[in-house]
Amino acid sequence: MDVALYFLSWALLAGGGFFCVVGAVGLLRMPDAFTRLHAASIIDTLGVGMIIAGLMVQSGLTLTTARLGIILVLVFFTSPVASHAIARSMRHRNVKPVLSEDRTGEGS
């Protein structure tokens, strides 16, 4: 395999792994459920994106790459829906976020 492609996929896979760990650490460190959602979205975006991209570089122009592309598109369309659904149902259940500043003027 081409050396440049090899190093590119190395970098993408290592970076994706790094961001997954960072997201998981954030999930543990953040103080409340709303802020934990932000940490989880790192896994859903950069973690998924970089690892799938690394695997795509690895397999070249094959059917496998197309399948990886489907996963990428699926996760990118569904993960914000899931995050938003969680945030929305937290609001409807009156879970109060820990806030430093509230600009909505509700005083919640």
Binding site: G16, C20, G23, A24, L27, A33, R36, L37, A40, I43, D44, G47, V48, I51, I52, I71, V75, S79, A82, I86, S89, M90, R93, V95
Partner: peptide
């Protein structure tokens, strides 16, 4: 329970990867 749902969702994403 919401923390569990968030983390459970991440478990699913990580299993996919």
């Amino acid at each position: 329970i919401f923390d569990r749902v968030i983390a459970g969702n991440s478990v699913g994403t990580l299993s996919v990867l």
